[in-house]
Design a protein around this nucleic acid. Structure first.
Length: 376
DNA sequence: TCTGGGGTCCTTCCGCCA
DNA sequence: TCTGTGGCGGAAGGACCC
């Protein structure tokens, strides 16, 4: 009997780990990645480098990734840099370098593909891998029916390490949902293999928020209903969940709590939309800062047009996104008769969208988006 | 001193049309 | 002609994820 084996591979503190390859003197130290283009390391006369720290950081921005020593100080991704500076002033601050991360992303994915070619991309630092038909995956090792697949997963970990110098964590289970949870059970540098029999002991004790698809809102609502763990969720009947969360999401919650997920790996996908947005250094007023806002919009439009053309797409629906000083966000869309990719046409459509927004409040963010993409 | 940027998918509402 | 119904595309917002 052939068993389905799906792996989820997650690179450990990916951006930070890539930076540590460049700056090995920072290994073991608290390091956070984030903020603007300032804070580049400065080479010193004696050959060492001087790094910025969080101490005295001012301005907007959040942490993108933190090393494990930094996490031990209480900082984590998504945290505002000002707040992080108060908790860990001594932590080193490095700017993001997406070019470099994309390079290492391609390397680790190519390395995995050498061992197991059926891969679903989930962003820059994680993938799902179908191990079902990888040679050896179905073999038992002694009495251990999972011995073969464990060996395959370990081989993938070794290959990634050899190709990049980076560690990853892998969860191997019968489906994507469980694999995603399992990959976090022994992080960093871990390997966890789970079968359906392990669900009560390994999955049910976990907080519901550990399930991919239960975010802050659903987590809060479950909490208010007295449900904190996956096991407590599993103890509620389907009908009860559907009463509280709707037919579709209720069904999904029920299945998820029992570790059931038959979603296939998506090995090829086309982009649906592309966008550019920016948060201002300070909030801007539509009238008083009109010139500045126009300049920013033109710049975003130009970047979006460049992105579209470089990747060979045009978009039929052009939209804008505004975030006001009270963090309320509004969007306006306009669908055109024909797809466009040039800056002038995108700018015209964005301008028409803007006339449909009440601009009384000050703005903190402006964005432009192209959707309904077609290949040129 | 709150809260980045780039995405996907889902729901709801509305107008239009058969 | 009136009313209802249902499909569909577009628009807006929200939840979630990396």
């Amino acid at each position: 009997m052939r068993r389905r084996w799906i792996a989820h591979l997650d690179m450990d503190a990916f951006y930070a780990s890539v930076e540590l390859l460049r700056y090995p003197e920072l290994v073991g130290q608290p390091v956070v990645i984030g903020g603007g283009r300032r804070h580049q390391p400065v080479p010193q006369a004696d050959g060492t480098r001087r790094f910025s720290t969080l101490a005295g950081y001012t301005g907007r921005g959040v942490i993108t990734t933190a090393t494990y020593p930094a996490r031990d100080l209480g900082v984590h991704s998504g945290m505002g840099l000002m707040k992080a500076a108060a908790l860990a002033p001594q932590a080193v601050l490095l700017p993001v370098d997406f070019e470099q991360y994309r390079l290492y992303s391609r390397r680790f994915k190519a390395a995995v593909a050498e061992v197991a070619p059926v891969i679903e991309n989930r962003g820059i630092d994680e993938i799902y891998i179908d191990l079902t038909d990888v040679p050896g995956a179905q073999d038992a090792v002694g009495h251990d029916g999972t011995g073969g697949v464990r060996a395959v997963a370990q081989e993938i970990r070794n290959t990634v390490k050899a190709a990049t110098g980076l560690t990853c964590s892998i969860g191997v289970t019968p489906n994507k949902l469980l694999a995603k949870v399992a990959s976090e059970l022994d992080k960093p540098d871990g390997l966890t293999v789970l079968t359906a029999q392990d669900i009560p002991s390994r999955i049910w004790p976990l907080q519901v928020r550990r399930i991919n698809g239960i975010g802050p809102k659903a987590g809060d609502r479950l909490h208010k209903l007295g449900i904190r763990t996956v096991g407590q969720l599993a103890a509620h009947p389907l009908a009860w969940l559907q009463e509280h969360f709707g037919k579709s999401y209720g069904r999904w919650l029920h299945n998820a709590s029992h570790g059931q997920d038959d979603s296939p790996l998506v090995t090829h996908s086309e982009p649906v939309s592309m966008s550019r947005e920016t948060t201002f250094e300070r909030d801007l007023h539509a009238v008083r800062d009109r010139a500045a806002l126009t300049g920013i919009l033109d710049e975003l439009v130009a970047e979006l047009a460049t992105d579209l053309q470089r990747k060979g797409y045009a978009g039929r629906t052009i939209g804008i996104k505004l975030r006001f000083d009270d963090f309320k966000t509004v969007t306006r869309d306009l669908t055109l008769p024909e797809p466009v990719s040039d800056a002038a046409a995108i700018r015209r459509a964005a301008g028409r969208c803007l006339t449909r927004v009440d601009l009384a409040r000050r703005l903190r963010l402006l964005g432009v988006r192209a959707a309904g993409l077609v290949r040129l």
